[in-house]
Structure formats: C-alpha cells, structure tokens
C-alpha cells in the first residue's frame, strides 16, 4: 500500500492547486444555476404526466410564437410522456396547417391540415432561421434537443461525483433552462439575465406570472411555468428516459447475478488448480 501513498499525495497536491485556480477563475457575479428537484432525476425518475401537459400548454401559448419544436405530433401520445389520447393528438394536429412534402397532381406545393405523423410546424411568422434572425436579431433555437444542448460547468471535483451511483446528477441542462427563465432580475433591462454567461441574452423575458392560465389548479406563477416547460423540454429531448431506466434496472440486476455466479465459478476453477 505504501507505494500508492506518494501517488496519492502528488495527486492531492495537484488537485488542490487546480481547485484553487478554478475558484479564482469563477466570477463572483456569474452564479451557477441552482439545482432543482425533478421527477425525472435519479435511478428511478420518470416524467410527471400532468406536469408535461402543463409544460406543453406553456410551449403552445408562449414559446411556440418564436421557437420551433421539431418533434412529431404522435410523440405527444407517448404514455411515458404527456400521454394525450390518440383522438386529442389527431384533433390537435389537424388544427395546424402543414406544408405537404410532395406536390399535388397539378405540381403545386400545398398546405393541408396536419396528421399525427407530421412534425409540429415551425412558427408561422418565421418560416426559416434567417427570417427569424432578421426580425429577432438572433434565430431562436429549435427546442427539440434544447435540454440536452444546454449545460453549465460543474467544475472539479464535482463533475466526478456527478457520474457516481447515488450521487448522479444529469439534469444540468434542465437546471440551466429553469434558471434562465427565472434569471430576468433587472426589471429595467428585459435582456439582462443573471444566469446567462455574460448576462446579455438575445431572448427578452418570455414569460411572467399569470401569462398562462392553468386549468388543473396549479398556481400560475413564473416558478411553476419554468419548471413545467423545463420538464416538457426535457421529455422532448429525451423521450426514452423512462424506458431506458426501466431496462437499465433489469440489466443491472442481471449483471450482478451473472458477475456473482462467475465469481464463484472462477473460485471453483481456481481451487482445482492447487
């Protein structure tokens, strides 16, 4: 064991010096997004259906004015996700006008009511990113992968712990989105955000208390809106999360049994060698 001591000391010294640098680097006025409690966190986490439905409502009434969300309507019927009924999704899809992929018999590209198989169309006002950028200054990103495409640096040594069973923290993107929505803390400057790196954000404050009317009794507060839309966007980016964790649990149990059996088999084989 002695031989590890020198190595341990050396690595500890190095770690400390790096940690010091990291802390010094961190600007005091750029706080990290606070960590939230999410139903989809942890080994057994799944999505909260009511929350996703509220989140979709927020998307539809607020975000969708500027942001595309390129997922098919049929995904909204996902029982692990928002879980809308087939008929609800069909009606919803039909309420959108979708450009048909192929021209009609006369060779014209035409619009038709959407079907569940179609992608949710882009905001009507901005048919492409250039059009959006021309009006808004910067094209709002497609939200279909937003929760996976955003993060904040956890720094050493926390990023190591974030990977470990029991301590795992994989919701950095969700916490970032939630923090951004709650980060408009200067009423006189709608494009100043506490959590956005550098604070100058292209998106002016999108939503405030009371902007969306919930029908299930949830309080219409910014805090609830941001949690709900974040959960919805996390589902949109990672719809297979519940299935993944369910299969994962079985795989882990199986592998522990297999490893145990193999361990004893190996021991038996080893005994025979002497």
């Amino acid at each position: 064991m002695i031989r590890f001591k020198s190595a341990a000391l050396a690595s500890a010294a190095l770690a400390l010096s790096f940690g010091g640098f990291a802390l010094a680097q961190e600007e005091a006025d750029q706080p990290k997004p606070p960590r939230q409690e999410w139903s989809f966190a942890g080994m057994f986490g799944t999505y909260d259906q009511a929350q996703l439905q509220r989140g979709f409502q927020v998307y539809r009434e607020v975000c969708s004015n500027c942001h595309a969300l390129s997922i098919p309507f049929r995904a909204l019927a996902d029982p692990d996700g928002p879980g809308y009924g087939e008929d609800q999704v069909k009606t919803l899809a039909a309420s959108y006008q979708v450009t048909n992929a192929e021209p009609n018999d006369k060779g014209e590209i035409f619009k038709r009511p959407g079907t569940p198989a179609d992608l949710i169309p882009r905001p009507e006002a901005y048919p492409n990113d250039q059009a959006a950028a021309a009006v808004l200054g910067k094209a709002p990103p497609d939200m279909n992968l937003l929760a996976k495409a955003r993060k904040y640096e956890r720094g050493f040594p926390w990023f190591v712990f974030d990977a470990l069973p029991g301590l795992e923290y994989q919701e950095v993107g969700s916490d970032y989105i939630d923090a951004i929505l709650n980060g408009y803390t200067k009423p006189d400057d709608p494009q100043w955000n506490l959590y956005y790196p550098g604070h100058k954000i292209a998106m002016p404050q999108p939503i405030t208390d009371g902007a969306v009317k919930y029908t299930d009794g949830t309080a219409p507060t910014l805090s609830n809106y941001s949690k709900d839309i974040t959960a919805f966007l996390t589902w949109a980016a990672e719809p297979n999360l519940p299935e993944r964790k369910k299969i994962g649990l079985r795989v882990m149990l199986f592998l522990f049994v297999l490893a145990g059996l193999l361990y004893f088999t190996k021991k038996r084989v080893g005994e025979a060698a002497h």
Partner: peptide, 15 residues
C-alpha cells in the same frame, strides 16, 4: 448507457 448516457457527450453536440 442506462443512467448517465450523456455524461461524456458534449452538450454542444446537440446543436
């Protein structure tokens, strides 16, 4: 694979 699949992936690659 099942619990921290995005841990080693860079978030920027989802853009």
């Amino acid at each position: 694979i099942f619990y921290i699949p995005n841990y080693v992936l860079d978030a920027d690659n989802s853009n």
